[in-house]
Design a protein around this nucleic acid. Structure first.
Length: 564
DNA sequence: AGAAGTTGCGCG
DNA sequence: AAAGCGCGCAACTTCT
């Protein structure tokens, strides 16, 4: 950080078990300015008061540990520096000479899937850890300050905001209409048998499959048994995956594919999921910011990131509220064009459909080809339709292609690559390194060399994708943080939505998935919230790429709130 | 019996 | 093993 604005206060907040907490005002280097001891009884109101009067940046061990309790008490934090999340970034970053010394004390904690305890102190909050905390924030601030470009400062702010947003979204929940979900299940799977057992439509397909396979007792969920049965009737597939089955012409295929689809829906998001995960009109998934090495979020429980599109209609605003649903089309290739400052690719990215722009460039003939070529470029395809099309992009977008090709080369050589804001890929593990050096010797088994080469290529594909996926994650993080910031400015709702907990009277983010958001807003604020989502996207683009002209268009809808 | 690994499929 | 990246989860199989 090149400088902290005058009057900007940072407060290290550490819980000290049953005794309460200690708050330490720190300067830009993390040195103590003054210290306040707070009893457990006054903690919540103290934090609330200071939040309102000082608007500090709270330095906390982890939002996941302390924020659920505050939210349950109705206290929202605006800005934090999340030591656990930032530790991971600053430890691995390759954009400064001396990254943070890694420490096992600062590894992510297991998410607590249960109910939030009131300001749960956690087990690591003994007296000794206070000095560790001070030491850690000072070390982190040193690394951030060493980056004269301020990218790590921005990344840490955004990542920390993500830590808050993840907990806020869980507290608010996704408004979920169980009746709609149930209706979809009944329509698709058939009536749910009273005594358990298979829903009607599923049973019909299963019977058809067993009939065509000539085995009325066959257990369809066992791949081994199913495969044997398929072989018996001459369907010579190597696996029971749908792509391979769909290549075969045989009367058993249609009902089998239909059965697999229904079976998947039932086991992943059927009635059992509904009763386990939807309570009081809300789905409350556990988000894990930074859970993926690239910086993307992961989730734990509920399969939040895999909700089938078929169930989207079950996401339903409360009475008097509506939903803003927004996503970015082709976020990753847009990030690539801007990172590489590739004006030709940015030109193709103008407007809603980047693939149409690629076709217009003359590189490929159809939109479908454009899509395969672009995805292949970012994923490192070398064979098949996709691999065949990639070289054409090298002619029209040499700068963009050079960026991903260089990232791949670095990865193959065992090197590290970084995103726009300085999140760096992990180093190769010891096994990988050993495998590579073992393959360079004089008389090495050719199979060994080939295997090592394969592993090197594999890592190249990972680093190739890392820079793009990771930068897209950074864009999304800033987008989220800016949306949240703008929603905060909106007034209280005319009609409360009690199920939203701390957000019962306020517009809030309800769902986030890589490049899309759902915002739950009072009806009367729909237009203002939509504007906030759009402005936030523009800000994210500008923060990452300055004046470089890259379009990041949103597909944004204000949901119609139909009567049931 | 329970852990660990595999398969297949949902999402971006 | 789809043609290439990143995930989580359920159900089954295999290992201990």
């Amino acid at each position: 950080m090149t400088g902290r604005p005058a009057g900007d206060s940072w407060i290290l907040l550490a819980t000290t078990g049953s005794q309460g907490a200690v708050a330490i005002h720190i300067d830009a280097a993390g040195a103590e300015l003054r210290r306040t001891n707070i009893t457990a009884a006054e903690l919540v109101s103290w934090v609330r008061d200071v939040e309102e009067s000082e608007h500090p940046r709270w330095v906390i061990r982890s939002a996941r540990e302390i924020y659920p309790g505050l939210l349950a008490a109705g206290v929202l934090l605006t800005r934090t520096h999340d030591l656990l999340l930032c530790h991971a970034i600053l430890r691995d970053t390759d954009i400064v000479a001396r990254p943070l010394a890694p420490s096992p004390d600062w590894l992510p904690v297991e998410p607590d899937v249960g109910e939030p305890a009131l300001f749960d102190a956690g087990e690591s909050s003994d007296a000794g850890s206070l000095s560790d905390l001070v030491e850690q924030v000072q070390a982190q601030l040193r690394v951030i300050a060493a980056d004269r470009t301020d990218r790590l400062s921005l990344l840490c702010s955004a990542e920390s905001a993500g830590g808050l947003i993840a907990e806020e979204m869980r507290a608010a929940g996704v408004p979920w209409d169980a009746a709609t979900h149930d209706r979809i299940l009944t329509d698709v799977l058939g009536a749910r048998p009273a005594g358990g057992g298979m829903p009607a439509h599923m049973a019909t397909q299963a019977d058809a499959v067993r009939f065509h396979l000539g085995d009325p007792q066959l257990h369809l969920e066992s791949h081994v048994k199913l495969l044997r049965a398929l072989h018996r009737v001459g369907v010579n597939v190597e696996s029971t995956s749908q792509w391979e089955l769909s290549e075969v012409a045989h009367p058993v295929i249609a009902p089998l594919l239909a059965y697999k689809k229904l079976s998947r829906l039932l086991s992943a998001n059927g009635w059992a999921w509904l009763s386990e995960w939807v309570r009081g009109g809300r789905f409350r998934p556990v988000y894990i910011p930074g859970g993926v090495v690239t910086g993307r979020w992961a989730s734990a429980g509920g399969g939040a990131l895999q909700l089938p599109r078929m169930l989207r209609p079950a996401v339903r605003a409360d009475p008097g509220w509506t939903l803003i649903v927004a996503d970015v089309a082709q976020l990753e290739p847009r990030m690539l064009a801007a990172m590489a400052a590739d004006k030709s690719m940015a030109e193709a990215a103008r407007g809603q459909d980047l693939y149409a722009g690629v076709v217009a460039s003359g590189a490929v003939a159809t939109r479908e080809e454009a899509k395969y070529a672009v995805l292949g470029a970012m994923y490192g395809a070398t064979t098949g339709d996709s691999g065949r099309l990639v070289p054409r992009l090298r002619k029209v977008y040499p700068r963009a292609m050079h960026l991903v090709d260089s990232a791949a080369r670095a990865g193959e050589d065992g090197g590290v690559v970084s995103t726009r804001l300085g999140r760096s890929s992990p180093r190769p593990d010891a096994l990988w390194q050993a495998q590579q050096s073992a393959a360079t010797g004089a008389d090495v088994d050719p199979a060994e060399v080939k295997r090592a080469r394969g592993r090197a290529r594999e890592r190249g594909r990972f680093t190739r994708n890392f820079v793009v996926q990771g930068t897209a994650a950074e864009w999304a993080l800033i987008w989220l943080a800016e949306i949240r910031h703008r929603l905060r400015q909106l007034p209280a709702a005319e009609t409360p939505a009690p199920a939203s907990g701390p957000f019962a009277e306020h517009a809030h983010l309800a769902f986030f998935l890589h490049d899309e958001v759902i915002v739950h807003v009072p009806l009367e604020q729909a237009d203002a919230a939509a504007a906030a989502v759009r402005e936030a996207a523009a800000v994210a683009t500008r923060r990452l790429f300055g004046a470089f002209p890259i379009d990041v268009p949103l597909d944004l809808q204000i949901m119609q709130t139909a009567e049931k």
